[in-house]
């Protein structure tokens, strides 16, 4: 359908395009700067006083320092474990809960649903949760403290429950007539049909786990268990690259400390940014279902 525009509409359209381009630059440039700076020659970067449009010189020194840093490799390993274990547990619980609550014939379904949704709007507070997990359940310095307390996101549960509710009844009835029990119906009928919704909530859980740091700060004292984000916080915010620059001659410490920061950001962020475009087309569906339902 060709759109006829008046003169003022053309100007309006031009302004929108310019605004969008400006927004893209403001959004992407900080990330691009970090990427360029991480590959730059540390000494050249130090003396640079403006924006970067490409790496200054080329150096992998920062990445070598990052890879050799024991805290980063430990953090990476721990985070991978927390993401895989946490996302798996979250998915299993969310799928089971969503299936059970999507059945019409469950006793007390509405009161249970009400009690679950209520937790989105009212909570007991940080300190009672902290004491419950750390003291009562004794999960201080346990990896479980980072995996179990946030295992179910009510938002994700509602997204998936809505997806299961939209599975055609006829398919389930056909399976039931063939003698399938609820586990088989869930596995063979509901899950295959709801794969887009499951993909979205998997991404949400994995990203949340990858980016989580507060739980680790509350419950972990043992540095061997630290996730990557806590290590990152030490390097980026509380400023300590000393551990990584040992062995570098003192005059080079300052410049390389700066590029190490950028390289750490890249190493910690790229994996997440890499998976998301593949799932982007499902976002609208996933987010929207939850919104309508609420």
């Amino acid at each position: 359908m060709p759109i006829k525009r008046s003169r003022s509409e053309k100007i309006f359209y031009g302004v929108i395009i310019l605004l969008m381009i400006a927004l893209m630059i403001v959004t992407a440039y900080p990330l691009l700067y970090v990427l360029f700076a991480s590959f730059s020659n540390p000494v050249e970067l130090m003396s640079n006083r403006g924006i970067l449009t490409a790496p200054l010189g080329f150096s992998l020194a920062a990445y070598e320092a990052v890879m050799q840093n024991p805290m980063i490799t430990i953090g990476y390993r721990n985070t991978l474990f927390y993401v895989i274990a946490g996302t798996s547990i979250s998915l299993v619980l969310t799928i089971m809960g969503a299936y059970a609550l999507s059945r019409k014939n469950v006793l007390w379904r509405n009161p249970i649903m009400f009690a679950i949704v209520f937790t989105m709007f009212f909570h007991g507070g940080m300190i009672p949760s902290y004491l419950l997990v750390g003291q009562t359940l004794g999960l201080q310095d346990s990896p479980l403290a980072l995996i179990i307390p946030g295992a179910i996101s009510t938002w994700n549960l509602i997204i998936l429950k809505t997806a299961f509710e939209s599975v055609p009844i006829a398919l389930e009835e056909a399976a039931r007539i063939d003698g399938a029990n609820d586990f088989q119906i869930l596995w063979n009928v509901c899950i295959p049909i709801s794969l887009p919704a499951i993909a979205v909530i998997t991404l949400f859980y994995a990203v949340a786990e990858w980016n989580a740091w507060f739980g680790a700060m509350l419950y972990l004292r043992n540095r061997e268990l630290y996730p990557l984000q806590i290590v990152l916080r030490e390097i980026l915010i509380t400023n300590s690259t000393e551990a990584m620059t040992t062995g570098v001659s003192s005059g080079d410490v300052l410049p390389i400390a700066e590029t190490i920061k950028y390289a750490t950001i890249v190493v910690a962020t790229v994996p997440i940014l890499f998976v998301y475009p593949f799932l982007q087309k499902y976002f609208v569906k996933g987010v929207m279902i939850g919104a309508i339902k609420e």
Partner: peptide, 19 residues
């Protein structure tokens, strides 16, 4: 399937409300 989910909410959401 419902039991672990209800248990999760009782412990980690209603537990702190009691706390």
């Amino acid at each position: 399937m419902l039991v672990p989910v209800v248990a999760y909410y009782v412990v980690f959401h209603y537990g702190p409300m009691y706390g």
